[in-house]
Design a protein around this nucleic acid. Sequence first.
DNA 1: CTGAAAGCGCTTACAG
DNA 2: CTGAAAGCGCTTACAG
Lengths: 341, 341
Amino acid sequence: MPNIYDVAKRARVSVATVSAVLNDSAFVSADLKGRVETAVAALGYQPNLLARSMAKQRTQTLGMIVPDIANPFFPEVVRGAEDTAHAAGYTLLIASSDNDVKKEEIYLRLFLAKRVDGIILTKAPGRLPVVLQDALAKAGVPIVLLARTVPGFTADVVELDDKGAAYEGVTHLLRLGYRRVGFVGGLRGASTSRRRLDGYKAALRDWKIRLDPALVADGDFRVESGYQAGLALLKARPDAVFVANYLMTVGFMEALRQYRLRCPEDVALVTCDDYPWMDSFAPRLTTIDLPKRDLGAAAAQLLVERMARKQGRPRTVKLKNAMRVRESCGCALRGSTAIAR
Amino acid sequence: MPNIYDVAKRARVSVATVSAVLNDSAFVSADLKGRVETAVAALGYQPNLLARSMAKQRTQTLGMIVPDIANPFFPEVVRGAEDTAHAAGYTLLIASSDNDVKKEEIYLRLFLAKRVDGIILTKAPGRLPVVLQDALAKAGVPIVLLARTVPGFTADVVELDDKGAAYEGVTHLLRLGYRRVGFVGGLRGASTSRRRLDGYKAALRDWKIRLDPALVADGDFRVESGYQAGLALLKARPDAVFVANYLMTVGFMEALRQYRLRCPEDVALVTCDDYPWMDSFAPRLTTIDLPKRDLGAAAAQLLVERMARKQGRPRTVKLKNAMRVRESCGCALRGSTAIAR
DNA sequence: CTGAAAGCGCTTACAG
DNA sequence: CTGAAAGCGCTTACAG
């Protein structure tokens, strides 16, 4: 493949001039500019971005680590980040951590070694080692935290309203008259899980209902954990349940089926997270829609701005949820009082 | 950040020696090796992979273009590719083309300019411009085609058994006694769509049923197109339908709902593509499970092998499907004769 | 076994 | 306005 010297030779100019017309970084006379352009076209020259990155110390590449791209929550997030990043001239390097801090650290170091300009991270539960924090800082590579915050590490963050989501969902159930409302929580150690539990507790408190520990189960955001949580929790005879994400709801439904319990007739359900297919299958789930695409877009945007201006105090963007009332909450059974809120 | 010269200075050796111990590329005496290692540790030195890529003319990075990462078919594919690529020492650059050849070409050129070592491509409908084919060839960057083949471009490819999927699904319906079986096809111009239609036709032919054009509708693999196809197709009163992917099924179900038609009682349905949540919601879909993760893994594997051995005739890997019989096909209504096949 | 030096392909002060 | 040259941080023949 031709390089900038080939172009310079053919155009009978220096490589500096070629570079200047390619990047429009200095005034070049119309004559030379024309010669360079024809040489570029004739040779089919494409600048080597690797070399440019070396010289400019910027790669125009962003690293993004998600727990698992195959969890349907994240593709939409990634797409939001991808579009925003691309519009700003960045390409996305992607990796799944499986919520494993070891794997996460490996990818983080790899991204650092590849000299990404910035990183979007949905942190695996656990701290970010200080040595890594130092390495990040020394390299001047900003991180924006997506969805999950990390104790002992301050950075820009884009958050969902996790507490509000659970609060709103549980309140909806309470308003419909359910009194034994269970809760299937997310991965322990994730700030999102903690806050959703907080929202559940706050809702109960506002309705002066004592929390029954038998009605609370932990999961890890995956299908199997929702199933196991369901098996355990259903023994305590809840009349309704709030499940902290979709995949666990899938597992929970399986547990219901196994107990020959119907939703919403026997156990009503509200869950976090919405998908296009939720209107098409029964029970049509009542959900708190988390703005996935906006989440990714906001993270990329924050990162782009941070890379432009390294100083300045960390910023937090908090996104709003929207409840989608369908059937699984039992609205149709219990009258429409709840909708009138 | 420290570079290799800093390490060399501190260890009182040359950079060549540092490089040799780092890459284990030449014998170095225990003494020098030890000095290098302590210097590396003391400085917290991390090799700059960008510089290494420049020198070695290999980036250990792969580019992957999918139509849309937010289409639930692809995240699983990407995950398969990611894991295989990472195991072989490669990182993944990802981009969504929206099935738009212009966008695709932009990303392809970007990947080329970034000097990826190879590319995994699910081609947008349309040819791959000859100039681009030349650029790819000249750069020595191999492509493996994922799921969709491209006329006028030979490369390694990993395929699904698209024709077999439709054939099997439609045959299942025919066997259950349905005689007016409709077909909602995928994006026009994609080889997968063409072959699924072929499978539909072949099944009808084997059962000596004349194809009724009113029972065939085109889609584009997205929800809305399935809905529109449903609205059109349902007027022709099918008793069953095969839908070429999940997202269009979602739209099709919406059309059914609008016509107040039940599935499977009024219209039975079989579709391509399976997801973990299909057991949990009604109607439980009978599907042809396409091995998404294997698809991605096989593509990455093929690419890794191709990068190691640039010569050799193109290879094609064809993956097998598996039918998952549930409720939407109406098995329960029509007896279990079909299952006995 | 070890090191000096060229080379990968750009950008960017700095002269002129 | 234009060009010679250094520099980005590695690897790799090639001497010695």
